[in-house]
Amino acid sequence: MNPLLLLFMFLLTANCEAAWRSTHVQITNNLDPNTTDLTIHCKSADDDLGVHVLHHQEFYRWDFKINLFGGTQFWCSFQWLNQFHWLDVFIEETFNCRDCKWIISNDGPSLYNKITKVYDHKKWNDEKKRT
């Protein structure tokens, strides 16, 4: 059998398997209890998930399937008091999670690491240097 055809079939099978499994993103308001609510607005290139207001320790969660052809990405804006930030919460090529759990604290976002069992602090997208 043609090696290129075998490679194509392998890649198609791997992408189909990924597309069948659901991926989950969960965002929890871990701001100081005396802080006002956290307002989030999440989107992808294809979906606008709308605006959600989270009280202290409440979370918003959604499930989705990976795009068969790749490139699945979700980002959110976060607003409270005089703060406004945005963050990529899922990028298929970058994030190695099928159950991505974020907490949003006064000092920034953190993503749960299933290997170390702790939340790793991340930078807001608006804090990252552009190259």
Rank of each mutant, 00 (worst) to 15 (best):
T39Q: 12
T23N: 14
N15I: 02
F74T: 01
N34H: 12
I104C: 07
S77C: 07
K43H: 09
K123R: 11
I66W: 00
I40C: 06
C42K: 01
S77G: 12
I66S: 10
N106E: 10
N2T: 07
F78V: 08
R98T: 14
W124L: 07
K114E: 11
P33W: 09
I40M: 04
I91C: 02
C42G: 02
Q57K: 15
K123S: 12
W102R: 02
Q57I: 05
I27E: 02
C76P: 06
D88M: 00
S77K: 12
D47F: 01
M1G: 14
K65C: 10
D63N: 06
E58H: 09
Y112P: 08
D88L: 05
L6R: 11
Q57R: 14
E92T: 09
K101V: 10
L31E: 07
M9D: 03
A14V: 11
L31M: 13
E92D: 11
L4V: 14
L7Q: 15
L4C: 14
L12Y: 01
S44I: 04
I27P: 06
T23K: 15
N125L: 05
K65Q: 11
H24C: 04
K101D: 11
L87S: 03
T28V: 09
R61H: 08
E58R: 10
R98L: 11
V118C: 08
N82V: 13
C76K: 02
A19K: 01
W75P: 03
K123E: 07
M1N: 14
N2F: 03
L11A: 10
S110H: 04
E58M: 11
F8S: 12
L81N: 15
T13E: 06
H24V: 13
K43I: 04
I91W: 00
A45V: 10
N15S: 15
F78L: 11
I91V: 14
D99E: 10
W20P: 00
C100I: 11
I27M: 05
I115H: 08
Q57S: 14
T94P: 02
S44T: 09
N30R: 13
Y119Q: 01
P3D: 08
H121T: 07
H55L: 12
S110Y: 00
Q83D: 10
M1S: 13
F69N: 05
I115K: 14
C16R: 08
G50H: 00
D120V: 09
H85A: 09
C97Y: 06
Q73S: 12
V89P: 09
T39K: 15
W75I: 01
T36I: 05
E92V: 04
A14D: 03
T131H: 12
C76G: 04
H55C: 08
T23A: 11
P109K: 06
F69V: 06
E93P: 00
L49T: 00
S22Y: 10
Q57H: 12
C42S: 03
H52K: 11
L87M: 09
K128C: 05
F95E: 08
L54S: 07
V53K: 11
F95C: 01
R21I: 02
W80E: 04
V53I: 13
M9C: 13
N30T: 03
D46W: 06
Y60W: 06
G70L: 02
